[in-house]
Amino acid sequence: MPGDIHVWSVRDEEIGDEGLLALYRSWLSVEETERMGRFMFARHRHQYLVTRALLRSTLSLYAPWVAPQQWVFASNAWGKPAVVAPAVPMAFNLSHTEGLVVLALTLESSVGIDVESRHRAVDLELAERFFSPHEVRHLSGLAEAERASAFITFWTLKEAYIKACGQGLSIPLDSFSFSLAVPGQIGFSCQNLDPLSAGRWRFWQGESGAFVLSLGCSPAQTEPAMAVRFYETVPGRGHTPGAAVMCRTSSG
């Protein structure tokens, strides 16, 4: 796994077995159980439960001496969670949208992942207000029918970068920029990073059906051959190789 990112996905709406859901609930901490109970709608409680089960059971696949219920997490000042016990050198990040939950795991110091559906409603005015000038020009040059899809492409990349940094929206969305000018490649620049530091960042974008997912990672060492491996799972039941297709990567 060194130098790799493993992406695990689960279709939360397809999990309805009561015995399996009871197992998931037995893995939750008191804090997680209380948080789940605060969701107003049953579908949100269900997705939260599956999300925590995905995280806990997958971590235990890599550290089988730790039971899913034994993992302890804490969040930084901006809300990004991390493992605090037992001590393992794994970084993770989670994202979800309606119908899909994804988890990214790596031995690097940090990773960010975001997933969205191409079918979700988008507000293109957000791009004009918050995206970089380069990104706005790219969107403006597209046919109207293509703009919503391109917005999702940019949005997931920007979310992945922010989540990898772990500083939330304290990082202005227009302070960094992605370029999609070269087919299959992702260009990246950032006002707050020198070119060498910006060049260390790696980005990937894949598609699975109607879903688009983006990853961002700044490896501790230069890893030009970093690989992304996809898996699909039902937590506590098993997993198979994922069906996501990589559509673009950073040139590094």
Rank of each mutant, 00 (worst) to 15 (best):
residue 213 L to N: 02
residue 138 H to F: 14
residue 141 G to Q: 07
residue 172 P to C: 09
residue 192 N to Y: 12
residue 217 C to N: 10
residue 151 F to P: 06
residue 219 P to N: 08
residue 149 S to R: 13
residue 144 E to N: 03
residue 131 F to M: 11
residue 113 I to W: 05
residue 163 K to P: 04
residue 149 S to T: 13
residue 132 S to R: 08
residue 154 F to G: 01
residue 226 M to P: 00
residue 113 I to C: 07
residue 191 Q to L: 14
residue 197 S to A: 15
residue 169 L to S: 11
residue 138 H to N: 00
residue 166 G to E: 05
residue 129 R to P: 01
residue 131 F to S: 10
residue 142 L to C: 02
residue 129 R to Y: 03
residue 203 F to T: 09
residue 163 K to Y: 08
residue 160 A to Y: 07
residue 143 A to V: 04
residue 199 G to M: 09
residue 182 V to A: 13
residue 169 L to Q: 11
residue 218 S to T: 06
residue 150 A to W: 05
residue 154 F to S: 01
residue 114 D to Y: 08
residue 126 L to Y: 10
residue 131 F to C: 11
residue 137 R to K: 13
residue 185 Q to H: 12
residue 227 A to S: 14
residue 174 D to N: 14
residue 136 V to G: 03
residue 199 G to C: 08
residue 122 V to F: 09
residue 124 L to M: 10
residue 157 L to K: 04
residue 214 S to T: 09
residue 199 G to A: 12
residue 182 V to H: 07
residue 225 A to D: 15
residue 190 C to Y: 06
residue 226 M to C: 14
residue 183 P to F: 12
residue 111 V to Q: 03
residue 204 W to D: 10
residue 119 H to W: 11
residue 199 G to Y: 07
residue 113 I to G: 04
residue 213 L to F: 12
residue 190 C to Q: 07
residue 209 G to L: 12
residue 135 E to W: 08
residue 149 S to D: 15
residue 139 L to S: 02
residue 219 P to R: 08
residue 104 A to C: 03
residue 210 A to F: 00
residue 138 H to S: 06
residue 183 P to D: 12
residue 109 S to N: 13
residue 206 G to H: 14
residue 183 P to K: 12
residue 216 G to E: 05
